[in-house]
Design a protein around this nucleic acid. Structure first.
Length: 797
DNA sequence: AGCACGCCGACT
DNA sequence: GTCGGCGTGCTC
C-alpha cells in the first residue's frame, strides 16, 4: 500500500504529495489524516498522510519511517477542506493542515548525535559533549565555536558517531499520580499503624481510584503513609491522563430556554426547518442590539444536539469573555469546549482532544475554532459576523465565513451569520437571496433603543470648551454618578497620546526602520513603534531643531483617565485596554468589579464595545467618533457606523433607559448621523451608493498584492512587472491599480509597494496570481523579495 | 528547509 | 594544482 504524504517543508516546489510505502504491519494504522515521519532526501521529516492507494506511478518509493498518531488528527472532510483552502488563498497545503491542528501537535524533528564507539576514540575537542548519557543536539554542536564540524563529520564517517532524528512533540498530555486499592489485598497491616488502616479504610469506602494530591488534601495524611502501603502492595500507584481545566472551580448556573418573542419565533423556524430536513442554507440573522440573538443561537443548537449533531459557535476574540462563555456553558454544561487565544498551548490541546474524542458537542471559540474536527456538524454560528477579525491577516489569509460555508455545504447544515450591523457584503448577498435574511427589529421585552445625541465638537470649541469632554457629556456623567448609575466611555485609542510633535518646527518623531510616527508610552516614558517594536527614550529636545517645545498630540485612554480624575475627582474609573488587560484573568477581574458596581465609569477601547451587558449602564459616551472615519480605507464609514451602533447597544439593556452621547467633529456624516435613528437599512443604501461610485466591494472583488524588498529600486521594478503582467493577462473589464507605495511605505527597513485588482468575474485570476509567484520564485527563495497576495483584503497597510 | 552537486576565484 | 565560495536543483 502507498501513502500520499504532504511533507513538512513549506516551499512551493514541495507543495505536492509524495508517495511512500506503508510497511505491512502498519497498514491498519496508517490512514488519511495520520501524521507520519518519512525519509526525505538525507533526512527525516514529518508529514500528513492525505490518501492511501494501492500503487504509485513513482518507482523508487521509500517506506514510512514511523507514525505519530494512532487516530487520525484530520478527518477526511478537513483534508479536502485544506486542499480547497490552499487553492483559494494561494497558500501551501501544509500550512492549511497546520492551521487545523493545535500548536502543541506541530512537532519539530530534532537531529541528535549518538555515540557508538568508545569516547576515548573521539578527538579531544568534541569529547566533552558526549560525556553525559544524553546525546547532544546537532544544532547545539554547530553553535559551539570550539567544535569543528570537520571532526564530527570525520567521526560519523568512521562510524564512531551516528546521526539520529528524534521527533519531539511539544504538547504533552498532562498526567496525574493516582492511587487505588490493589485487587487482592492479602497483606495485613499492623494494628499500631493507625494512619495506614485509616487510609485504607477511606480508600475502600471511596471504591474508586483517587488523585494522590486530592487524597492528601482530603485526609490530611502524609505522602509517606501512601508510599508505605504501596510498598506493601496494598495500594497501587499509577499515572492517569487528566485535562488541564482552564475554568477549574468555575460553577455555571444552569439556564433553561427562554420564552421566545414572536419575532424570535419567526426567525428560528426556518433554521429549525433546515436542521429538520438536513439541508444547507446560509442565514443572515440581522438583529438589533439587545434583540436576543443569542437565545436564537442557543435554541437552534439545542435542536442540533437533539439530532445527535454538533455545533460550532464563532465569536470575535475580543468578546470571548467569561460572560459570553457563561451563556453557553450555562445551557449546555460539560458539552461545551472553549477555544481562544487566552488558553495556554496545553489547554488548547486538551480542549481540542475533547472534540476529537467526541466528549463535547459544542465548541465556542475564535476564528480558528471553525476547524474543530467534528464529523457530524449540525449547525455553524458566526456571531458579530461583520467583525474583521474573522479574516486572518497572515498566511493562510482565509476568512472564517468562507470556511463555515464550505463546511455547512459538506455537512448539509445551516450556517448562521448574526449581527446588528452586518457587513455590506453579507447584507448585499442576503438581499440577492444568496443568504436568507432573518430580521429581528425589536429588543426583547419591548425595551426602547437608546436615545442618541450627537455633539458637534467644533461648536464646543467655539464656545470655549477645549477639554475632551463636551458640556453635555460632563453634565450627564455627574448625573449618573449622583444616581449611582454606570457609564461606559469609549475611546478607540490606547496609550497616552498618538504622536509627538515639535511645536517650533513641526517635526514628528518617527521610527527609523518604518515610515510611521512613534507612539508615546507614559509608564516607560518612551516612544514605541507599533510595527517593529523599536523603542527609544522620550527625547527632551527636538531631534530636528533642538527646541524644547515638544508636545503630545491626540489622546489615548491613559490620558483620558487622568483628565477624568481631574474634572470628576469623585468618580471611580476602571480603565480597560490592552495595557490593563494583558495579564491572564485581568479582563475578567476588571469586568466583574464593574459589574459589582465598584466603579462609576468604565473607560476603554474596542474591547468594551461588545457583549458587555450590565443592568446599571444607562449612559454611553463616545469621545471621538471620527477617529476611524478619516483613515484611508473604503470601509471606514462602515466601521464607524458598526462601532457606534455596537457601543450604543451597551446602554439600557435592562429596566433602566439608556442614553448615548457621541462626540464628533463631523456630526453630519451619514455614518454618525444615522446612529441617532439606528437605521441600518438607510445606512446600507447610502454606503452602497458610495461603493458603487468608488468601485468597491460588494460591487467588485479585490486582491491586494504587496511587494517588499530592502532595495527600493528592486521593489519598483518588480511591482511594475507584476502590474503589466496582470494588465496583459486579465480581462479588460478588470481594473489593475498601481503600483503605488503602500500606506506604510517602509516596515523594518523594507520598502513596500502595492497593487490592487478589482474584478467581477475573472476565471483566470488564481492561475495568473500563481504565475506571478512562480515567475519571481528565484528572487524570493534566495533573498530578499517578498510578494504577499491577499484575496478580499481587510487591511490595506 | 536542508543538503549535495557543481562551477569559478585565491591560496598552501 | 586544491580549498571553499554559494548559485541550482532535488527530495517519493
Amino acid at each position: 500500500m502507498i501513502a500520499k504524504v504532504i511533507v513538512d517543508v513549506p516551499t512551493s516546489n514541495t507543495d505536492r504529495v509524495f508517495d511512500y510505502d506503508i510497511p505491512k504491519e502498519w497498514e491498519e494504522v496508517i490512514q488519511p489524516g495520520v501524521r507520519v515521519v518519512v525519509p526525505f532526501g538525507p533526512r527525516k521529516i514529518q508529514g500528513f498522510v492525505v490518501d492511501v492507494t494501492n500503487d504509485s506511478t513513482f518507482h523508487k518509493t521509500k517506506p514510512i519511517d514511523d507514525f505519530l498518531d494512532v487516530v487520525p488528527v484530520l478527518t477526511s472532510e478537513l483534508l479536502s477542506l485544506g486542499e480547497w483552502l490552499a487553492d483559494q488563498t494561494l497558500c501551501f497545503q501544509l500550512s492549511a493542515y497546520q492551521l487545523m491542528i493545535p500548536a502543541a501537535l506541530r512537532t519539530k524533528v530534532k537531529k541528535e548525535l549518538c555515540l557508538l564507539a568508545h569516547i576515548e576514540t573521539l578527538p579531544y575537542s568534541i569529547r566533552p559533549h558526549f560525556q553525559g548519557d544524553k546525546s547532544p543536539l546537532w544544532n547545539d554542536l554547530v553553535k559551539d565555536k570550539n567544535v569543528s564540524l570537520k571532526e564530527i563529520q570525520q567521526a560519523v564517517k568512521e562510524g564512531k558517531l551516528e546521526v539520529r532524528y528524534q521527533v519531539e512533540e511539544k504538547g504533552k498530555k498532562k498526567m496525574e499520580r493516582y492511587v487505588k486499592v490493589s485487587e487482592n489485598t492479602t497483606c495485613d497491616i499492623p494494628t499500631r499503624a493507625v494512619k495506614q488502616r485509616e487510609l485504607l479504610a477511606y480508600l475502600q469506602s471511596l471504591g474508586k481510584p483517587i488523585a494522590v494530591q486530592a487524597l492528601l488534601q482530603e485526609t490530611k495524611m502524609t505522602r509517606q503513609t501512601i508510599t508505605t502501603l504501596v510498598k506493601k502492595g496494598v495500594l497501587q500507584e499509577f499515572d492517569k491522563e487528566v485535562y488541564r481545566d482552564p475554568l477549574a472551580g468555575v460553577e455555571y448556573e444552569r439556564t433553561l430556554p427562554l420564552e421566545l418573542t414572536d419575532q424570535q419565533r419567526d426567525v428560528i423556524q426556518p433554521i429549525l426547518d433546515t436542521l429538520e430536513t438536513k439541508s444547507h442554507y446560509t442565514f443572515l440573522l440581522h438583529g438589533v442590539t439587545g434583540s436576543g440573538k443569542t437565545e436564537v443561537y442557543l435554541q437552534s443548537i439545542d435542536k442540533a444536539l437533539e439530532q445527535k449533531r454538533e455545533a460550532i459557535v464563532l465569536v470575535p476574540e475580543i468578546s470571548l469573555t467569561p460572560q459570553m462563555v457563561q451563556r453557553f456553558k450555562g445551557r449546555f454544561g460539560s458539552k461545551v469546549a472553549v477555544l481562544h487565544s487566552g488558553l495556554s498551548m496545553g489547554e488548547k490541546y486538551d480542549e481540542w482532544r475533547k472534540i476529537l474524542r467526541k466528549e463535547v458537542q459544542v465548541v465556542v471559540g475564535a476564528r480558528s475554532a471553525i476547524f474543530a474536527p467534528f464529523t457530524n456538524l449540525g449547525i455553524i454560528i458566526i456571531d458579530e459576523e461583520h467583525e474583521t477579525s474573522y479574516k486572518q491577516e497572515e498566511n493562510p489569509r482565509y476568512h472564517a465565513r468562507d470556511v463555515a460555508i464550505f463546511r455547512g455545504k459538506h455537512h448539509q447544515c445551516p450556517v448562521i451569520l448574526g449581527s446588528a450591523t452586518p457587513s455590506l457584503e453579507s447584507y448585499a448577498r442576503a438581499r440577492k437571496n444568496v443568504y436568507r435574511l432573518l430580521p429581528l427589529t425589536e429588543r426583547v421585552h419591548n425595551r426602547a433603543m437608546p436615545e442618541v445625541h450627537v455633539v458637534d465638537m467644533r461648536e464646543e470649541l467655539r464656545s470655549g470648551n477645549r477639554s475632551m469632554f463636551s458640556y453635555i457629556l460632563l453634565e450627564k456623567l455627574k448625573d449618573r454618578i449622583e444616581k449611582g448609575e454606570q457609564t461606559v466611555l469609549f475611546l478607540n485609542r490606547r496609550g497616552y497620546s498618538t504622536f509627538v510633535m515639535c511645536r517650533d518646527c513641526g517635526y514628528v518623531a518617527s521610527c527609523e526602520h518604518c515610515d510611521i510616527s512613534l507612539t508615546y508610552h507614559r509608564t516607560q516614558n518612551s516612544l514605541k513603534c507599533h510595527y517593529c517594536g523599536h523603542e527609544e527614550k522620550m527625547p527632551t529636545k527636538c531631534d530636528s531643531c533642538g527646541s524644547e517645545h515638544i508636545r503630545f498630540f491626540g489622546s489615548g485612554t491613559q490620558k483620558v483617565e487622568e483628565e477624568l480624575t481631574r474634572v470628576l475627582p469623585e468618580a471611580k474609573v476602571i480603565r480597560m485596554d490592552i495595557d490593563t488587560t494583558r495579564r491572564k484573568g485581568s479582563h475578567e477581574r476588571l469586568l466583574s468589579a464593574f459589574g459589582r458596581g465598584e466603579a462609576d465609569i468604565l473607560l476603554g477601547t474596542q474591547m468594551i464595545a461588545k457583549g458587555l451587558d450590565f443592568p446599571k449602564i444607562t449612559l454611553v459616551g463616545v469621545l471621538a467618533a471620527d477617529s476611524m472615519l478619516h483613515i484611508p480605507d473604503f470601509r471606514s464609514a462602515e466601521r464607524t457606523f458598526q462601532l457606534m451602533e455596537q457601543v450604543s447597544g451597551r446602554a439600557g439593556r435592562h429596566d433602566l433607559k439608556g442614553e448615548v452621547i457621541i462626540q464628533s467633529y463631523t456630526p453630519d456624516h451619514y455614518s454618525i448621523e444615522l446612529v441617532k435613528s439606528h437605521d441600518y437599512e438607510q445606512f446600507f443604501q447610502m454606503e452602497m451608493t458610495q461603493r458603487k461610485v468608488g468601485l468597491y466591494p460588494p460591487y467588485v472583488f479585490m486582491v491586494l498584492i504587496t511587494i517588499s524588498h530592502s532595495e527600493l529600486t528592486n521593489v519598483i521594478t518588480v511591482s511594475e512587472k507584476v502590474v503589466s503582467f496582470l494588465r496583459r493577462e486579465l480581462f479588460e473589464s478588470t481594473t489593475v491599480l498601481g503600483p503605488v507605495a503602500s500606506p506604510l511605505a517602509r516596515i523594518k527597513d523594507r520598502y513596500r509597494y502595492q497593487c490592487m485588482i478589482k474584478y467581477r468575474n475573472e476565471p483566470r485570476l488564481l492561475e495568473a496570481l500563481r504565475e506571478i509567484r512562480q515567475h519571481f520564485i528565484r528572487e524570493i527563495n534566495q533573498g530578499d523579495l517578498q510578494i504577499s497576495i491577499d484575496l478580499q483584503p481587510y487591511l490595506f497597510t
